[in-house]
Design a protein around this nucleic acid. Structure first.
Lengths: 227, 227
DNA sequence: ATTTGACCCGATGTGCATTTTGGGTCAAAC
DNA sequence: GTTTGACCCAAAATGCACATCGGGTCAAAT
């Protein structure tokens, strides 16, 4: 822990600069010098905050995921139906899709991430799948998802949907892409009909699950146990 | 139309050989000489059947899609619930996923197809999206899908699912992938709950739609109007 | 005590001559 | 009448000498 580089405000400015450049040019094609220039400081100053470019990027990922969790939880809590799986999922997709870096990360975009992911944490994808399943399981226990679906299978189907949703816009011609709001709305409806228990389920119990799960996940992130 | 190369049986053997090699090495990395060797004939003989490597591949695609349509329709017709959208979709996914070449084609896998797709038909993806939407519209008219969903949006969601389903196995670790049968079963159930009209819809009417639509599509393929 | 930017050096890129590859042809063999 | 495979040639791959790039360092400036 460097004494000198203990300026969280400047660290955030550097991370902002890095994020802008990485989304635009990709991890490999963004140099430390460019990041410094974009942040308006010198190259050496970067190394007062992190010992290497990789560590800088790891910090960027951590911040990105923390921001995502925070924003997601806020939106779910503010939504009266936030505890329903469909609504939950749509909020997560929407927040995800609006953060270019995280979106590239979740869909494992090699152009943006270069060979960083492989070097840093090849098991990231596996962890995400496990998290998905635990999530469904908890929601079932809370009565927010039908009990008769298999968490692993449904987790996989949700991953298919998320993955397709994140990647399709780069492939499908714009004139065949409905407005984001329409897709999100339809997806929520879709999931609600497919997965909600008879009677609609308890939205408050669902919210409770998110609160608990995310608290645990954020703690793990801060301890560096999750990518 | 070459007189000499009018041997459909041998043409099929060559296409089989080409398919095996292309799935393994990709279009660009598969040479005409290798195809000939794999098929047990000489290079020159290939050119008795098709005027170029591109034309050979076009023929392969046509055959692949005809086979797909045939197999899909057979399975749908043989299934008592074949006319329901969920069941229909699962049969198409299952047939698709089991044909490596077609699977790579649908998910626009650049490794396998090289730059052929772009050269041959860049609008393929757009056509597929349009076809999806027409399909939903016809099923709605036949009463096999709820009338209050927007065909474009649902078509897009189905594309997300299909796309994710075809690409995920290459990314997700096997231990987090449920058995194909479980996914397919759950997907059918999923779609059924989400999209079937109240009362379950008319399965026979649904089958009728497939029969009509596919007859039209196959005709267009044979005339070379569709990729 | 901070911050800088010139400097280091392995890795990557560039330009170019040379070789190999591979789609397509066709005279000869069958 | 069919089929072959040596042959053609443009395009891509390879090898190589040389230049540049870029992550990381640290003595000097602020």
């Amino acid at each position: 822990m460097a004494e000198a580089g203990n300026n969280p405000e400047r660290a955030n400015r550097i991370l902002d600069a890095a994020a802008r450049l990485i989304v635009h040019y990709g991890f490999d094609k963004t140099t430390v010098g460019e990041i410094a220039a974009e942040a308006g400081i010198s190259k050496g100053a970067i190394y007062l905050h992190w010992p290497s470019k990789d560590e800088l990027f790891a910090a960027l990922l951590l911040r990105e995921m923390q921001d995502f969790s925070r924003e997601w939880i806020e939106r779910v809590m503010a939504d009266p139906d936030g505890g329903k799986l469909g609504v939950m999922f749509l909020h997560s997709l929407d927040v995800l899709a609006r953060r270019p870096l995280l979106r590239a990360l979740v869909s494992s975009d090699r152009r943006v991430l270069g060979d960083f992911l492989q070097r840093y944490d090849p098991s990231m994808f596996a962890r995400r799948m496990t998290l998905n399943q635990d999530f469904i399981r908890l929601l079932q226990a809370a009565g927010a998802v039908r009990a008769d679906v298999d968490p692993q299978t449904i987790g996989y189907i949700l991953a298919c949907l998320r993955y397709g949703y994140l990647l399709l816009p780069d492939l499908a011609p714009p004139e065949h892409t409905p407005p984001v709001e329409a897709i999100i709305q339809a997806l929520a409806d879709f999931l609600e009909r497919a997965l909600a228990p008879a009677g609609g389920g308890d939205s408050e119990a669902g919210k409770q699950v998110i609160r608990q799960l995310m608290a645990g996940v954020m703690q793990q992130w801060e301890q560096g146990k999750l990518a």
